[in-house]
Structures are given as C-alpha cells and as structure tokens.
Design a protein around this nucleic acid. Structure first.
Lengths: 341, 341
DNA sequence: AATAGTATTGCAAACGTTTTCATTGTCGCA
DNA sequence: TGCGACAATGAAAACGTTTGCAATACTATT
C-alpha cells in the first residue's frame, strides 16, 4: 500500500545507488565477466534496493531480440491444441522466450490482423497451426523475414518450416485396420471437409485404402457430422439404422465418442455389433468406455519439435526449409474387433 | 524469396518516401485529424510501398503502454483452463491487447520468475489463476504497481481484484443435492488438498453441508484420488466394495468420470445402485454416459469478467479492490437419483 | 624504471519513436 | 493592406538501453 510515487527505477537509478556509471550497470547484466566482482556485488545490491527491472523495450530498440514469439491457434477449446501449446511453450520457456498467444477462430482475415499486431511487437518468430494462411499473411511473413513454422500437419511443399503428421496417412492407417479385421461395410463419419484440409486429407487417405481393398460407393457411405460429441451422436444414429455397416470410421476422436454413444444407445454392443475406429488419440480417449481404437498423433512431440525448429531458424535464417513428417501409429483398443468376431 | 537486404522500413523511410518529416508520419498514425487528408493519403501510400510496421518497443520507451497483458495458468491440459483462457483473451483482443501466456505447472517459484519476465516486457497488467502466489510475487506486483487480477476462485480478502466461484459453495451445493435425494452414506472422492486450496474449499463446503444434515465420520468416508480419469477409476473401485456407499461426491468432473467408470465396471447401474455427483460442468460432462450431475462453474463468464476488471484497473489504478463472487448452479442430470429410488 | 599489455570503467552516440515548441502559410475580417 | 487566428508542418529533445571508443589504473616483462 505504500504508494511509491517516484517512477519505477531505471538503469540510472541503479547506477547512482551503486556509485558507478550506467555503462557498468548495463555490462553487469550483459557481460558480467567484464566487471569486477566487487563492483558487480555493489550493483546487485543496488538492484535489489531499487527494485529495478530491465526494460526489454529499450533493449529491443538497440537491435536486441524481443525474446518473444507469436503463436496463433484456431482455438484452445479442443484439448488437442492445448497439448500442442503446452509442449511448444514449455520448450520455448527453457530458452527464456515468452509466448504471445492468440486464437484466430478459424478466421484467416483475423489471423492476418493478429500476425500484424505480433510484428508490431517485433516477435522473433511465429508459429501457426496448419497451412491455410491467407496470401496477405504469407507476404507479410516473407517481406519482414520473420522466422515461421507451421505445426500440426505435414505438407510436402509448405512455404516455410513445418512439422506434423500426414493426415492422409492417419486416414489410411485407420482404414487399413478395419480392412484387416475383415470389415466390408464401413461408414465414414467425417466433419465438413470444405474449410478443413485436415479432415479432407484424412478422408482421402481412408478412401484410398478402402478403394485399394476394392471398397467404394455404397460399401463406404459418407456420414457428415461435426466436431462435437452430441452432434456426432445425433448424426450417426440414423445411419446406424439405415445402412447396415459393421464398422464406423470416424474422422476424429470426438466424433468417435459420439458415434460410440449412438451405437450404445441403440442397444448395440461395441465391438460385437459395431466396431468404432477414431483418429487422434487425445487425452481421455483411452479412458472412454469402451476404450476407443484410434490412430495416435503425437501432439506433444510436434509442439516440442516445432519450438526446436523455430529456434534453429531464428539462429540461422538462411537454413533450407525443414519439413518434418511425424509418424502416426495405430492404437488398437477395445472398440474394434474382427468382423463376425 | 526476394531477399531485401535493406533493413526493414522505419518511420524515416516512410517520411522520405512520402516527402514529409517524421513528425508528420507519427501524427498521421496517432492523431490523424491533425494532418491534412492529402498528406495523409501520401503517407498511407508510402506505408504500403515500404511495408512499414510500427515498432511498439520504440513507442513504449516514450511512455506508451505496451499493449500486452500477462496471463499465468497452472496448466492448459485441463479443458477448464482452456475455456477460461479463451474467454479472457477474446475479451482483451477486442481492446487490441495481446496476451503473453505462460504456465507455471503449479510451481510458485516458477510463477515468480515468469512474472518477472513479464514485467521486463512491461505488461500493462497480469492475470493469475487462484490465490496461491508466493510472497515474492505479491511484493513484486505491489512495488511495480502492476494491475493484477486473480481468477477462478473468489476470495473475500484477496490482495487484489478477483473474480470466481466460491469453491466452498460449490462443495456445499453438491452435497445438498445428495442429501435432498435422501442419501445417508456418501463417499467423498477428492484430490489431495494440501497444495490445492480449490479442492480444500470444496471439501470443506461439502463437509459443512453434510454435518448440518447430521452426517459425519464413517457415513462420509474420504477417498483420496487425483486429477485423472484413470487414477480416479482405480482409486474409487476398492472403496465401492468396502464402504457401502449409495452415492459418491466427487471433487471435480474428471474424478466424477473415473468414479462412474469404476462403478459401471463393477456391474453397478448408475444411478440405481450408486449416484455420482461431480463439480465443474466442463465440456463433455453432459455428453458422458450417463450424463453426470454436477455443479456448474461458468468459466467463460469468469474469464470475460476478469478481462473487464483488468481493463478497468488499467484505466484507473486507484479503484478500490473489486471482488466478484459468481454463482454456482446445480445441474442435476442422469447420474443421481433418490435413495432407493 | 620504463614499457607494453590488459582489466576496468566512463563518455557519448545510437536505436525508433512521440511530443513540445516554433515556424510557416492561409484565411477572414476590419 | 494589415492583423490576428488557426491549421499544417518541421526541428529537436526525450525515453532507457547497449556498445564502440577513449581513458585510466594496474600487472608483468625487460
């Protein structure tokens, strides 16, 4: 409550308190070896006394890095992005870098504005989820030569560094599992693929595998749903009655849960009457009852690797573009079983 | 790919391109009314040509606000905090403020370091989850006179602005529901309460209500668990065999799910054989099968209100401390029923 | 004892803005 | 025609640092 009305301490205050020049104080911070231990101690004491905190803005203006990176996610609502963000920020925190976080809400125009704001703060780099930046955003990044990395999906010809899983692979892996179990009538429960290249790729991968096994058309009906357990439940139910599938391949874990609940609700037993296959393997999917078979996408690894890539590029902007495709992995659990057991 | 090796444009570059002085350029941004429309247009064109982006660091150094606020969460892994963060950051983004996000991992020492780093960036304010700051953190905030707000739990004598639910109320509300349903043998499944004042308050609230109804000791056995569906499931199972409870009051939704799964696994029918009551009402709790009765805590509202409070205090630091207690609400669903139906 | 070399420190310029103050030009009006 | 008022602009100081350079004091070598 003691209102210290004096302005907060700056480097001059510290210098005065320690009886040295401001250059010496600055050096005590940035090149401690260049100042005598005794002087350094005096300065340290003065810093404590005055409550001095360095002003990064002033450092930046002298060409120093800002010590921040921007991170734009579509949303934090899905646990999966939260896992990604956690891994990413933990890795950067170890490098003493702060994160400026924003969510774009899947709006590319908004993403551009956020990006601009971040560059006003002179972030040392930015990380974006996915590859759907607007042309304006891309131009901005390239003109300002800001190190950038895209995470979550792998893309063979991304404009900048990227690390992620191939959603095509994920879709294919899921389909192959069901095919190997002998299923021949497989419902594809997917979200809208128009504005969602991730879902589109997964669906394409699944269909490729199914076609290879000779399955197409009515054998693999498409059921369109969306990212919500409740919606997926409602959308799957009618299909379970009309098409007589023996397995449902779901575009993600959330839809997987919805589909499973729909089947259970109709008195089906999983996996006896219907196999349920998901994609993602996010927190909670293993604990679901029945535990869902799915395709594992290692979000923490991706977040961590993205941080590393960004640091590398910040250190050397002339590095060739790096693209890291992380492997997806089949995780068979209790919700899938051989056809006709 | 055109490597513009010239440094990025600054205000001088723009001034030169527009044929005016830098003062005029600065004014065109900050006080547009003070510069002639015609000149303004020339400047705007020059800005586009040169790709100029204002340097907030340089503005800050001249006493301007940084346009950032710091937000420290324990973790993002739990959806609930993600909802909180989303609401908070959406609200601030509308005020053109960027968020510096960090997670403390429930480590107070780390929280202090993060706080310091944020102050180096001269954040205009900070938001913290809960009330368990270290003395050092509190001192830092008060000395630097940084506007601060604590969200998530209400605390009647918090050192600074706060908004949140009373966890005591939440615990009491949950207990009252079970009492009203006629249960007399109620298991309390809670996480460790030592380093977690939230859980401690909920437990205290629950016990207060139970005691009022004459229930204590063996009637309300305490089962200690932790924040994980799998762990809660494992921890609840033995209790379900040995104590013959008719209802389980769980410290949060996650534990609630675990407890429910444990009961189902043992062949019990919910709510016939066992009622399950949770606290939180986070995403997914309604869709759980059976849908869990719980106590609703309005995370988005809290996040939004916290942002508003912070903005208010940033506008006027001399405001008296504000404390906002948000109401919790009973949400009875399918997992609870009258004793012995 | 003189010299060269080195460790420690201070001085002052520079970084990219904002803002105060002074200057110029334009207009209306007597 | 002259004068005051006002609008538009520019010059320069200031913000809090870092750092190249110069100055000083000390150490080791001859």
């Amino acid at each position: 409550m003691t209102r210290t009305d004096k302005k907060n301490a700056d480097i001059h205050t510290v210098a005065r308190a320690a009886g040295v020049s401001i250059s010496t104080v600055s050096r005590a911070f940035n090149h401690p070896d260049q100042v005598q231990p005794q002087t350094r101690r005096r300065i340290e004491r003065a810093v404590l006394e005055t409550g001095y905190i360095r002003n990064r803005a002033a450092q930046m203006i002298k060409g120093r890095r800002s010590g921040t990176v921007g991170l734009i996610v579509p949303t934090l609502e899905h646990t999966i992005f939260a896992e990604l963000v956690t891994a990413f920020s933990d890795a950067l925190e170890q490098a003493e870098i702060s994160i400026i976080l924003s969510s774009s809400n899947y709006d590319l125009e908004r993403e551009f504005r956020l990006l601009r704001k971040m560059m006003e703060h002179r972030v040392d780099g930015v990380a974006l989820i996915g590859h759907q930046q607007s042309a304006a955003s891309r131009r901005l990044l390239s003109v300002q030569q800001t190190p950038a990395v895209s995470l979550w999906n792998y893309h063979p010809d991304s404009a900048f560094d990227c690390v992620g899983a191939s959603n095509f692979d994920a879709g294919r892996t899921a389909a192959q599992h069901l095919i190997e179990l002998g299923h021949r009538k497989i419902g594809l429960v997917f979200p809208e693929t128009d504005a969602n290249d991730r879902a589109a790729d997964r669906l394409a991968g699944a269909r490729a595998a199914l076609a290879e096994a000779g399955l197409s058309g009515d054998d693999v009906p498409l059921i369109t749903s969306s990212y919500s357990v409740a919606r997926a439940k409602a959308d799957s139910a009618p299909a379970l009655v009309t098409r007589n599938t023996t397995a449902l391949l779901c575009g993600n874990d959330v839809i997987g849960r919805g589909a499973a609940l729909a089947a259970i609700n109709m008195g089906m037993l999983i996996p006896r009457d219907q196999s349920i296959m998901a994609i993602g393997d996010f927190k909670g999917t293993a604990e679901f009852e029945p535990s869902l078979s799915t395709v594992h996408i290692p979000a923490p690894f991706i977040g961590n690797r993205a941080a590393q890539m960004l640091l590398d590029r910040m250190a050397d902007p002339d590095l060739p573009v790096q693209r890291h495709r992380v492997n997806v992995e089949l995780v068979p659990r209790a919700s899938t079983a051989p056809y006709g057991h």
